[in-house]
Nucleic acid binder design. Sequence first.
DNA 1: TTGTAGGCGTTATCAA
DNA 2: TTGATAACGCCTACAA
Lengths: 353, 353
Amino acid sequence: MGERRRYASSTDVARLAGVSQSAVSRTYTEGRSVSPQTRAKVLAAAGQLGYRPSLIPRIMLTHRSYLVAIVVGGMYNPFYAAVLEQFAVKLPEIGFQPLLVHVDSGDSLDDALPRLASYRVDAVVSALAIRSARSAGQLAQLAIPVIAFNTSFRNAWVSSVSADNERAGRVIADLFFNRGGSRFGFIAGARSSTASEARLKGYRAGLRSLGILDVEVARADFRYEDGAAAAAELYRDGVGPDAIFCANDLIALGAMDTLRHRLGRRVPDDVLVAGFDDIPAASWVAYELTTFVQDSIGMVAEAVALLLAATASALPFGGRRVVLPSRLVERDSTTRSPAAHLEAPTRDAGQPA
Amino acid sequence: MGERRRYASSTDVARLAGVSQSAVSRTYTEGRSVSPQTRAKVLAAAGQLGYRPSLIPRIMLTHRSYLVAIVVGGMYNPFYAAVLEQFAVKLPEIGFQPLLVHVDSGDSLDDALPRLASYRVDAVVSALAIRSARSAGQLAQLAIPVIAFNTSFRNAWVSSVSADNERAGRVIADLFFNRGGSRFGFIAGARSSTASEARLKGYRAGLRSLGILDVEVARADFRYEDGAAAAAELYRDGVGPDAIFCANDLIALGAMDTLRHRLGRRVPDDVLVAGFDDIPAASWVAYELTTFVQDSIGMVAEAVALLLAATASALPFGGRRVVLPSRLVERDSTTRSPAAHLEAPTRDAGQPA
DNA sequence: TTGTAGGCGTTATCAA
DNA sequence: TTGATAACGCCTACAA
């Protein structure tokens, strides 16, 4: 039991081909000298045995595994699914093989770390923020370069890539104001999320510079259902904001549906709504949500660049911080028609999606 | 360059602790004898060096890597994201480390296989169907057990886990008929998808046994935009089906939005719509889509069970087929209110837009 | 309880 | 061009 049918080894091939093991090795090493005859014999035997050279011994010899851990969680959010897919495509292109690690929250990276170290990963990329200083400390001790998304924490081995969350908050404050918003709300993600907090911070700052000090804040998790519940909460006492910035798109979509279908509010005519991420559903005809494009492709590209730099030398490589601008996409959820209050709720008929 | 700071080895620890390398090994091996003093010395040195035993040499010794490749693609579909996440959670629980492989279509597994073989994976689980006989042949030659979702192809090394797609098609035919449907449509996914074809086959069979031979079929890919376009296509000449079964939820949501917002059709009052997968958006208030729960948790559990069985022995283990029932969830998209045709277009509270 | 020795599958080095 | 040999880090005998 547990006794797997072994993969063919170069020795097996050598024996079958009637050559030395080194001859087999050379056949599979670019730029080493093998005679055509030997090569042919080797390839024939290899084909017969289904031989592929193993990378495992090489890891021992070179101290490089070309394995990179990808840390994910909360894949219900299409943004993370997109990030993961992008990593899965890009890492192999530069010769790395992704190893998947799922954690429930940023903190439980602690549990996964020893396992990763056992596989001798060359680096760790995390779609999730690293929140626990303990994780960070462990990482530093293991001397594994880490690139994490939307993380404020950094040290000699931990770098970060993030969107310009704070600026986005400011931009949306201006937009809401220009579109006639007067009572402002925010639905936050988990309190521990730096990204959510930064968005709120920028939003507050933007409103303050417009002379507005009051922001109604509801707490949610990053899901549709939480957004729906938080929206209901904001209007509990009858009144409520006429402009709501949500920490991400899922929250915003939940809030929109609650506003429209449970609270009888029109979006955008009664309430302006905006989100963050630009997940596919944000552009669906039923929503047409104004949001910020969190550029997963760009973020992954930056992360990959950092990773290459980090794995190129033995020196600590961390503390870097890359901030990518997030682009506003204005859609119907903040675009009031001139005579909105006179019309039926559906003003946008056209536009297929 | 490329010279990574090495992970500490047991030899490093032994040297620092002033003991032999085997003493270190024993310290980390359950049930081997080490004196408390030696153990203490070893652990102290190990802590200082950040030592974690490497699994790499063990792979060579035992011919077991405990690595399992997870093949994914099309992560824009929340169903696949959920499957992947589930694998990422379950595999480590039984001692396997997932290795992520992204392919664009079932066929390009070919390209990824040699790389996987090089890492000496113990098995492959594929969220995607294996479509290329060549892939399957390669797999058989490499003698790697494979468990693939929704695949009709099987051989000595390839097993499959799938939903009962055909039965679902029959069930929905009955449902549509009972809800008053009279002109039936189907929006298919990619033609190469066995799952989509099976759903259509069952749908056709169900309708046939109700005396209905005519089904209008539109082709789409598995995305929202494709569903939207395919729906428009079905109504190109003015008339069109009054009941549409879609190969998956994304297609159904796109079709619903096109029906409601571009074609001025009411769902469910003018057209009944159903999908497949039960992705989160299917239960969003704006849609309330009738669909089938494709039980990702159950499917992964079955896949994991097959994997355990397959990796337990050296014998070929394939050709197994597990079919899981998919459960119908009826929501508003097929539930007509009694006087639907007398009411305003929006019978499900406010209208989305 | 300890340490020494051999071997896993590669690649790099060296001698033939 | 070839083949023998050492080395990587660990585990499992085996001997002390």
